[in-house]
Amino acid sequence: MPDRDRPLLAVLIDADNVRARDAAKIMREIAAIGEPALRRVYGDWSSEHLKGWREPIHALGLVAHQETANSRGKNATDIGLVIHAMDILHSGKFDAFVIVSSDSDFTALVNRLREDGLTVIGIGEEKTNPALRNVYNRFILVENLKDEEDSNDTAAKPKPKADMNHAYQLIRTAIERCDTEDDWVALGPLGVNLMAAHPDFDTRSYGFAKLSSLIKAMPKLEFANKDNRPMVRPKT
Rank of each mutant, 00 (worst) to 15 (best):
E35H: 11
R19G: 13
R54Q: 13
H49A: 11
R54M: 14
M27K: 06
G34E: 04
D16Q: 13
R39N: 12
R40W: 08
E35I: 08
V41C: 08
I33G: 03
R54W: 06
H49F: 09
A32Y: 02
S47F: 10
N17E: 12
I26L: 10
D22V: 02
N17K: 12
R40A: 08
R21A: 12
Y42G: 02
D44N: 11
I30V: 09
W53E: 01
I30Y: 05
R28T: 07
W45H: 12
A32V: 00
M27G: 07
R39I: 12
D22N: 14
R40I: 06
R19I: 14
G34N: 04
K25P: 01
R19P: 05
R54L: 09
S47A: 15
E29S: 13
A31C: 11
S47E: 13
L50P: 02
W45E: 07
E29L: 10
L50D: 10
Y42S: 03
G34R: 08
P56R: 04
I26M: 07
R19K: 13
H49K: 10
E35A: 09
V41Q: 05
A31R: 05
S46N: 12
V18D: 03
M27P: 05
K25N: 04
S46R: 15
I30C: 07
R28M: 04
W45C: 09
M27D: 00
I26S: 05
W53T: 06
A31E: 14
D16A: 07
H49M: 02
K51G: 08
R40G: 12
D22E: 02
G52A: 15
I30N: 03
P56N: 07
R21G: 13
K51T: 15
A20Y: 06
D22H: 05
E35P: 00
N17A: 06
H49D: 14
P36W: 04
W53M: 03
A32T: 11
G43A: 05
E48I: 11
G43F: 05
G52L: 05
V41A: 03
M27I: 10
V18W: 11
A15F: 08
L50M: 10
K51H: 11
D44Q: 06
D44V: 07
M27L: 10
M27Y: 07
G43C: 06
A37V: 14
A15P: 00
E48L: 06
R21D: 14
I33C: 04
A15C: 08
R39P: 09
I26C: 01
E29H: 11
E48K: 14
V41E: 01
R28Y: 03
R21N: 13
S47Q: 15
V18H: 11
I30F: 00
A15E: 04
P36V: 05
N17Q: 00
A31F: 02
K51Q: 14
I33S: 01
D22I: 14
E29Y: 03
K25G: 11
G34D: 02
E35L: 12
I26N: 07
P56Q: 11
E29R: 12
S46C: 11
R40E: 08
G52E: 08
D44W: 01
L38R: 13
R21H: 14
A37L: 13
R54E: 07
A24G: 01
S47M: 13
G52P: 10
S46D: 14
S46K: 13
S47P: 09
G34Y: 00
K51N: 14
R40T: 12
G43K: 09
A15Y: 03
E29D: 09
I26R: 10
V18N: 04
G43L: 01
